[in-house]
């Protein structure tokens, strides 16, 4: 047996508990196969438990462990880092609980926060940097360390209540999505809800829309005075929150 075929057989044993593959490896001390199988699954369960504590609190331990077991069967790990393993778990939750979308959405919030924790560092524009800027032509570059999450339920309220140790509210389904903004500032992950107009504005800036065009669009939607005031408020908040990486 070649090394490659042995390693393929070990993978088949770990992922599918393939007894024939284990037998082909010609190993002594067969009890050892159980140790490796247990280590493999226990490590992945621990990874999911660590990444999704509030999802687990919402579903309960038994349901969470069932979902984790299903996910481990469905998605064998592929990256060198365990940090990547939780990425697909919300999809598994969505498939498992199609009538309870808040479960997947609480997991999405936790995932966004975890990813933000180790996102790339970058420069931040502050109020002191705002000199000699041609605002009509300026493009605002949004920091890498932000994530926008679209929620069809009151998952943010549920997540917040679980985090605070409060009684969670009843689940509500939204006609218009809640949007939450997750970002990192001074090494701390932060989270807040934003309305649809601010969401659209941030998406437009990410897509390369110039600041002057953003102001024009706001003026068309809300009138000149209110549109300008609104964009001014957003700009003040984005600067205070450290969301602007550069102004070109």
């Amino acid at each position: 047996m070649t090394l490659l075929s042995m390693q393929r057989d070990m993978r088949a044993w770990l992922v599918h508990e393939d007894e024939a593959a284990a037998a082909r490896m010609g190993a002594r001390a067969h009890a050892g196969f159980g140790v490796y199988q247990n280590n493999y699954r226990a490590q992945l369960v621990a990874c999911l438990e660590s990444s999704f504590p509030r999802t687990r609190a919402w579903t309960g331990d038994e349901a969470f462990l069932n979902a984790a077991a299903l996910h481990i069967d469905r998605v064998p790990p592929s990256s060198w880092t365990l940090d990547a393993y939780p990425h697909d778990f919300p999809t598994t939750l969505s498939a498992l609980y199609p009538d309870d979308p808040e479960i997947e959405e609480i997991a999405q919030i936790e995932l966004a926060l975890e990813q933000m924790f180790v996102a790339a560092d970058g420069t931040i524009v502050t109020v002191d940097d705002l000199q000699d800027i041609d605002w009509d032509r300026a493009s605002l570059r949004i920091a890498h360390t932000i994530e926008l999450v679209d929620l069809r339920t009151n998952a943010f309220a549920l997540w917040s209540a679980i985090a605070a140790g409060d009684q969670p509210p009843t689940v509500e389904h939204r006609k218009v999505s809640d949007i939450i903004l997750v970002w990192r500032q001074d090494g701390q992950c932060r989270i807040r809800t934003i309305d649809q107009t601010e969401f659209q504005a941030l998406r437009a800036l990410r897509a390369g829309t110039r600041f002057g065009d953003l102001c024009s669009d706001a003026a068309i939607l809300f009138g000149q005075e209110r549109g300008t005031a609104l964009v001014g408020q957003w700009l003040g908040k984005w600067l205070a929150d450290g969301l602007i990486a550069a102004i070109d």
Binding site: L3, L4, R8, M10, Y36, N39, C47, S78
Partner: peptide, 25 residues
């Protein structure tokens, strides 16, 4: 040890057979 093969990563330190082939690899 080895942890990864063909896009699968076990995140566990798996054993090697102590053969000439393994040593070369």
């Amino acid at each position: 040890s080895w942890t990864r093969i063909e896009g699968f990563n076990s995140h566990d330190l798996l054993p090697l057979p102590y053969t000439e082939e393994s040593l070369a690899m």
